[in-house]
């Protein structure tokens, strides 16, 4: 490893969850803490201030590049990530990257992987990536096919819970009650309706593929570990990364990581790993919070907190969603403190 990354023990806190915990062995330190990290997405990209997707993608791809010695190709679905990184004449990508269409990233990636096999270069690994819309909706057919064939592709979904690039419309990953441009906060059931949507990680698991995980920009170490692990496995793999979108969610740009954290700590976004269709690990909640803590700072949920008359019913239903996750994935355990 390059010298600079092996920072001599200088100053650190016991057990900190920070990016650079120098108490850890050098090889266990985060990729992001390294001055030598590849910055898969370099500066100058046009993501909004505080974009969680820009961050999540750099986290994931830097980790993948580290894990493969930079032998990785990325295929990108249409969406914010694609648009903000590659407006002619500038690209922010530092690795070989291909954008084809909105709904075909998984298939294109299968093609790249097939080509690498045919060319006798199986060491070159392939990542497909897209937003929640490009993954759970329009790209779902290709994704399911890639899973089912167990093609050697890691698919990463950056879930910001709506079609952001086209102006915040509902996707099948939009949570209940959330306001989007196509689920406006009007009428007696404002926002997205309850009882809809799909859980892609569980669907991915149902394909019986070797590895499925959820991750979040709020837990870098977990995310990196999962990407790294995924890169050691051959076959179809899926990582679903939770990435807040300040623009679409109506949140403050500095709150991106905080909101991602609250989503985990409330139980609304369970972080877990599954192998061959079985959940093998989940990340316990460290400091449980009520869903309100997560919902309140976001304007897309503002209608739930109207002055004087909070929508207690629907807040309770969202709490029930969180509680169900907590139960299902056993998120409240004594090992909560990492």
């Amino acid at each position: 490893m390059p010298n600079e990354t092996v920072q001599p023990i200088k100053f650190y806190q016991t057990g900190t969850l920070t990016v650079g915990n120098r108490l850890l062995d050098p090889e266990k330190r985060t990729v992001q803490a390294s001055g030598e990290r590849t910055n898969a997405i370099t500066s100058g990209h046009r993501a909004c201030q505080g974009c969680g997707e820009a961050l999540g993608a750099r986290y994931a791809l830097d980790a993948a590049m580290r894990a493969t010695g930079n032998r990785v190709v990325a295929v990108n679905a249409t969406g914010c990530l694609e648009v903000f990184t590659t407006p002619y004449p500038e690209t922010a990508w530092q690795l070989p990257w291909l954008h084809s269409l909105f709904g075909n990233a998984a298939a294109v990636a299968s093609g790249v992987a097939a080509a690498m096999r045919a060319k006798g270069r199986p060491e070159v690994r392939v990542i497909a990536q897209g937003g929640d819309g490009g993954t759970t909706d329009i790209g779902f057919g290709c994704l399911s096919g890639m899973f089912e064939r167990n093609d050697d592709v890691l698919y990463i979904c950056y879930d910001n819970e709506a079609y952001m690039n086209t102006g915040v419309q509902r996707s099948s990953a939009t949570p209940p009650a959330a306001r989007t441009a196509t689920t406006p906060a009007v009428g007696d059931k404002p926002g997205n309706v309850f009882g809809t949507g799909k859980n892609l990680p569980l669907i991915a698991m149902a394909h019986g593929i070797p590895y499925v995980a959820t991750a979040s920009v709020a837990d870098l170490r977990d995310l990196e570990a999962k990407v790294q692990k995924a890169m050691t496995i051959r076959g179809a793999r899926y990582i679903h990364v939770f990435v807040p979108c300040p623009l679409g969610w109506g949140s403050a740009s500095q709150d991106t990581i905080k909101l991602a954290r609250l989503a985990i700590e409330s139980g609304l976004f369970p972080v877990f790993e599954a192998e061959y269709g079985e959940v093998v690990r989940s990340r316990a909640i460290r400091r449980k919070v009520p869903v309100e803590d997560y919902l309140k700072p976001q304007r897309r949920f503002a209608h739930l907190f109207k002055a004087g008359k909070p929508d207690v019913d629907r807040i309770a239903r969202l709490q029930a969603v969180a509680d169900a996750n907590i139960k299902r994935f056993n998120l409240l355990r004594p090992d909560g403190d990492a």
């Binding site: 075909n104 298939a107 990636a109 093609g111 080509a115 045919a118 057919g141 290709c142 096919g145």
Partner: peptide, 28 residues
Amino acid sequence: KGCEYLNVESEFAALSVAIGSSAAGART
């Protein structure tokens, strides 16, 4: 020999796979 044959789930995927493999330098 030296050819990868993929049974895909739709024509959309078929040509998409082709796009990927061609961009990766394979005769497709």
